[in-house]
Structure formats: structure tokens, C-alpha cells
């Protein structure tokens, strides 16, 4: 998990009035904090028809335009997630014709891997991505927030504006569905000590 990508430390309360007033430094700091998070959400939740960079840009502009409507710093993460979800849905609708967006297939492989392991790893990542994208949206969101981004379940519940119990039951269903579909797609069985590779 890359460091510095969690939302918990973002938008400290004492800055919020500055953010709402549109103070340049406060807005810059806000962008600095959450833009990486938003880009990752776009990549992991957007699906093959969404250009994550373009979607993240659009979300940034929506946030800058509408941030004054968010009354408190505590409400910001769930509001931001709702904006992301809405913009991603618009992008999916807008780009029906695109069957697969090449930029969505992110290729991040360490320089010291062999061509064979590189190819194998790429295929595995693409297969995992395909399984995630086929999950129903409600399950996909919980799985990405908790198991991919390593957020706590209460944190995911706050982001999704859902009761903790709902997040727990969705997570359980998401993990089962993911495992079943991964098996159906012929992915290698998961093992706890499987080498993670990459960076």
C-alpha cells in the first residue's frame, strides 16, 4: 500500500473556514491531500471505459466549485466519495462506445523483473481488475476501500454513508463473490505467502 493515501488526516478542522472562503493556500493544500486518493478511486472503481486522469480532473473542478457547500471538515470525505461516484457514473454513460480504455490498464512493474514474470504479473493484475469490475457496484466499492486501500471498516462506512453492519455484510459478500469469480476466471489460487512483487 502506498503511504500517504488515507483520508483520515485530510482537511484539518481549523482550516475549514479558509477552505470554504476559497483561500488559495487552503485550496492548494486540499488538492495536495486528496488528489492522489481521488485518482486511485478513479483507477480502481472507474472501469475500463473511464479515463481516470480525465475523471479525476473533473472531480477536482467540481470540488473547487462546490466546496463552499460542505459545512464541516468531517463531512468532506463522504461528500468527496459521493462526487467521485457521480462523476464516474457520468463518464461511463458518456463513453458507451469505448470497449476498453488502454490507460485504465495500469502497468506498474519493478525494473528488476524478468520479461516472463513481467508478462505474468501484468496478466494477473488485468485478471484481478476484470473480476473487480464485474462485481456489483455496492460490493466493488466496499472491497476496494477495505481490502485494496486497507481502510478500516468504520472508515469505509463513513465514506459510503452507510451503517457499519451494512459495510460488514457487503464486505463478506464481496470477498466471497470475488473469490468465486476469480476461481471461475482461472486465476491462480490465493495464498497468504504469495509474493507481492512490483515496487
Amino acid at each position: 500500500m502506498s503511504p500517504g493515501l488515507r483520508l483520515v488526516q485530510t482537511t484539518p478542522a481549523h482550516d475549514w473556514t479558509d477552505v470554504q472562503r476559497g483561500e488559495p493556500n487552503a485550496l492548494e493544500a486540499l488538492l495536495e491531500e486528496w488528489l492522489p486518493v481521488v485518482l486511485q478511486w478513479c483507477r480502481r472503481l472507474g472501469g475500463p471505459r473511464v479515463d481516470p486522469d480525465q475523471a479525476a480532473q473533473e472531480i477536482a473542478i467540481v470540488v473547487l466549485r462546490r466546496i463552499h457547500t460542505v459545512r464541516a471538515a468531517a463531512a468532506f470525505p463522504s461528500w468527496l466519495f459521493a462526487v467521485t461516484r457521480r462523476v464516474l457514473a457520468q463518464h461511463r454513460r458518456r463513453h458507451w462506445g469505448i470497449r476498453w480504455n488502454a490507460s485504465a490498464a495500469v502497468d506498474r512493474v519493478a525494473a528488476d523483473t524478468t520479461p516472463e514474470s513481467h508478462t505474468q504479473r501484468q496478466e494477473e493484475i488485468a485478471a484481478v481488475r476484470a473480476v473487480i469490475q464485474r462485481l456489483p457496484q455496492t460490493l466493488r466499492e466496499v472491497l476496494v476501500l477495505v481490502d485494496v486501500e486497507e481502510r478500516s471498516q468504520p472508515e469505509a462506512a463513513e465514506l459510503l454513508s452507510l451503517p457499519l453492519g451494512t459495510v460488514k455484510s457487503r464486505l463478506r459478500r464481496a470477498r466471497l463473490t470475488f473469490a468465486r469469480q476469480a476461481r471461475a476466471d482461472g486465476l491462480r489460487p490465493a495464498t497468504a505467502d504469495e509474493p507481492s512483487g512490483g515496487e
Binding site: 506498474r108 493484475i125 504469495e194 512490483g198
Partner: peptide
């Protein structure tokens, strides 16, 4: 299986950072 994250998701996370 449903009590803990699938290791393949961890690997996916490592390959999709910003």
C-alpha cells in the same frame, strides 16, 4: 476466506498507485 482480504487484492493495490 471471507474473513480476511484476498492476497491478490494486495498485489493489485501495489500495482495501481497514484
Amino acid at each position: 476466506m471471507s474473513d480476511r482480504p484476498d492476497p491478490r487484492l494486495q498485489s493489485f493495490a501495489e500495482h495501481t498507485p497514484a
